[in-house]
Structure formats: structure tokens, C-alpha cells
Amino acid sequence: MHYTAQDIRDVKRKAIDIRADILQMIPAGKVGHLGGSCSAADITAALYFKHMKVFDDPKNPARDRCIFSKGHAVLAQYACFVELGYVDRSELPKVKTINGILQGHPDMDLTPGIEAVTGSLGQGLSISLGMALGLKLDKSESRVYTILGDGEISEGQIWEAAMAAAVFKADNLCAILDHNGVQATGPTADVFPIPNIKEKWATFGWNVIEIDGHDIEQILNALDQAKATKGQPTLIYANTVKGKGFAFAEGKAKYHNAAMTEEEYKMALETIEKARKEV
């Protein structure tokens, strides 16, 4: 599909909205998963606001499904739910509070729009595969999108699911690897370097597409290619930056799950204003 400059701009605006909403969820002094949510923000915007079939009713059976297997980055998804009207904006500051419906990790019972329980890493791809096969049994056209973390793929279950998805020819399943290069305690290159990731997925039987995970046009084109690919699942290997959008946090493990200072928070708000003017 060809995307116009307007299409791209619209998604970019949504990605800025997502980052602005994330700031509302974790103001200065409140610990939250800023880094991984922001590295996935552009991909999430492209999914919810352009590529996926979404409806006013988050339970509409004809919808496409998006599962954050890296459940800690769910703040990006919460922002989309607010923009889509599934969750009231007043819930944003109540993330991770006793009376809020937005939990620290995805909870499908409490939060409209959440498709599965994830957060214990490594399980979301298997859940997604089960959904994809269930949808195929129903002859549904709906597709399943799974956001994986590059730290997360050390979990053995990911590779069990990777093998199985190829065996079952789950071409309605697309995994997007948010390859931000940084995990909880440091750069993946230092903590647990996994070589040849793209080659591994390809050898496991997946269609692999590499993109810049912050380039909206590349994201949308890759999602279209995945949809057009038959007989095998697709992995979109998205090169991303942890904390993308906020210079002080970019590429830093510290912001995997941390609180911003007042000064950082002010800078972050200014960054959002600047970005809004630029688009």
C-alpha cells in the first residue's frame, strides 16, 4: 500500500500523543517503564492508528489483536486505549495505583483492550500463536501482532513458540521484535549477547523483515508485507532506541524502570511540545 505524507504525519502525531500520555502516567518521582514503552511507541501507533482493524468495541470479534509479550511496555498500549476511548483519560495518572484499572503489567480483566495476561516474559508469543490458530479454525480474517523485547527472547519458550508457529504455518501471526539493545540491567551486548537473531528466526521458518522501528513508513510497509506473506509467520526486526523521544533517557538502561527527576520531566514535556510543532 502507498502511504501519503498525510498518513505518515497522522501516525507520527499519534506517536507523540502516546509519549505525552506516558508522561501523564509516570510523572516526576513515579517509577515506570519509560524506556521500553517509548522504544515501542512508534510501532504501537502504526498498529493501532493505521494498520490494525480496531473498533469502538474492544471485544469486536472482527478486530486484529495486539499482545505486548514484553508486558512491562504496556504504557504505550494504555495510551492507545485512551486515544481509542476504551479507557478514560482520568485513569492515566492512576497507573499502578490501588484504585486504578491500569496495572503494572497487562491485565485483561481490569483493562478494556488488553487481550491476554503477559508480563512473565516469554509467554506472549505462545498465547498469540494459540489465538492465531483459533482464529484460523474460525476462518477469521483477523490477525495477531505480538511485541517482543530483545531481552525477552532469552526465554526458551519464545523459541518453542517460534518453532511451532512455523510448523503450523501461522501466517496470520506477526511478531515485532522491539530491538532496542538495552535490557533491565544494561546493554544486551553486555548482559546476554545473542548473535544472529535475524538469521535464527529465518532458520526457524519465519519471514524476517528488518526496519527502523521509528520510521513510520517503514513500519507500515513491513506490516503490509507481513500481511501479504502466506504460509509462514513474519518477524519484523525493528531497530529501535530505548527511551526514544526523550534525549536524556535514550539508550540508557537506567530508564528501563525508573522515576524521572523534576528537571528531566520538564525537559520531557518540552520535547513533546517541540515535536508537536515539528510534525
Binding site: S126, A132, A161
Partner: peptide
């Protein structure tokens, strides 16, 4: 492990 989580996905459909 994959089997158990896949079953969750199937139940969700």
C-alpha cells in the same frame, strides 16, 4: 510451556 500458553490463546478465541 508453549503448549500451556497456546491453550490460553485458543481459549481466548
Amino acid at each position: 510451556q508453549n503448549m500451556a500458553s497456546m491453550a490460553a490463546g485458543l481459549a481466548l478465541t
